[in-house]
Computed example of a mutant assay.
Amino acid sequence: MIHKILILTLEPYLAYLFFVLIGWVIERKVNSVEVNRLNPIRLNLECGLLYELTAAITLTVAPAFTTVGVNAAGGGWIVLPSSGWTLFPAFLLYAFTMDFFEYLFHRAQHRIPILWSMHSLHHSDAAINASTTNRHYWAEFAIKSMTIYMMGGIIFKVSSTIIGFYVVLGFYNFFPHMNLRVGLGRWWMVLNSPQYHRIHHSSLREHWNCNFSGLFPIFDVIFGTFHIPKQGEYPPTGLDTGEHPSGLIEAAFWPVRSLWRGAKVIDGLKVE
């Protein structure tokens, strides 16, 4: 079991390091919003490793909570094709459905206090960059496994090919988190971009509760949570309170830290 956990931890983490390195190089070659500080990047790398470790433990100890696990147990109302010309439409259907679930979960993270107490760790990065992508609280993967990933397995019976395509598509998430002055202009609705997602990470009240979509902003359009970036609009990021973890230990106990301070944290606003 330990050997399997190590493999499931190191493989995605090495991929994470690769994309962080690529992003770090691009962010210094292209017109970036700000110069990334090394200390937050180091903390992000540490948080990313802890997140991948807990994800690996979840996959090993409770595989039934994943889409593949639910399928193996007999789940999957809709059987998606695994080959032929219908494979690509099937993959798009799966990708859009799962991104919709990601959108709903993200909305919940900003509305339910206990979920926000964890998710605020991701938003506490005042120097958003490619390494911020996996700066998530370590328990979030298990929660998503028992909710949206399980739901994906209940609805769809998917092949390893579609799962593989979806994993590859997931690497796109590094791009919207990059510290770049890059937007899609009039095509903002097609895909998430660094400018569009930076609005979501903004510490300014005027940008709160918008641009939740992970891959496809169309869900923000449908539910009225979109904010169309204006030309040159690249706001500061981080929590409005200025709170951020001083190190990995504090990040690992981030929600409890909020309770220790006797504060209720909702949508980035600390209410005593």
Rank of each mutant, 00 (worst) to 15 (best):
L115D: 00
N129W: 07
Y13S: 11
T161L: 09
T58N: 11
I112M: 02
H106E: 08
W24P: 09
I199E: 07
S159R: 15
E272S: 11
P113L: 08
F171I: 01
L180H: 11
L87T: 12
I112Q: 01
W254R: 08
T132A: 05
S246Q: 10
S82F: 05
H106L: 05
L215K: 09
W254G: 01
K157V: 05
F219M: 11
H244V: 09
T86Y: 12
L38H: 00
F100E: 02
W116V: 01
S124M: 04
T54R: 02
F88V: 13
F219W: 15
G164R: 06
A251M: 07
V190C: 03
G23E: 03
L8N: 12
V61W: 15
V68S: 14
I57Q: 09
F156E: 14
E46D: 04
H197L: 09
I148P: 03
S120W: 04
M1D: 06
V158A: 05
Q109T: 13
I249M: 07
I41A: 08
N36F: 06
I266H: 08
K230L: 10
W85Y: 12
A73N: 10
T9E: 03
I5Q: 11
L259T: 12
I114Y: 12
G84V: 04
Q231S: 04
D99A: 01
T9M: 07
L6H: 00
G238S: 13
F91Q: 05
L53H: 03
A64I: 12
N179H: 11
L191N: 05
V265E: 00
V271G: 00
A95V: 01
A56T: 13
T67N: 06
L115K: 10
Q109Y: 06
L169A: 12
I112C: 02
F141K: 07
I266C: 03
H244F: 05
S32V: 07
P255V: 06
N211A: 05
K4P: 01
Y166S: 10
A108G: 12
P113W: 09
K4I: 14
I218G: 10
I41V: 03
Q231K: 12
N211H: 13
A139E: 03
W254Q: 02
F174I: 13
L248D: 00
G75L: 13
T133W: 06
I143M: 06
I7Y: 15
L38M: 07
E233H: 13
H106V: 08
I143K: 04
F96P: 08
D267E: 14
E250C: 04
K4G: 00
F105V: 04
P255Q: 14
N134V: 10
L8W: 04
H136D: 01
G152P: 05
P255F: 08
I155S: 12
L259F: 15
P229W: 11
H123Y: 11
L53C: 11
N179Q: 09
P229R: 14
E27L: 07
H136G: 08
G214M: 14
P89H: 08
C47T: 09
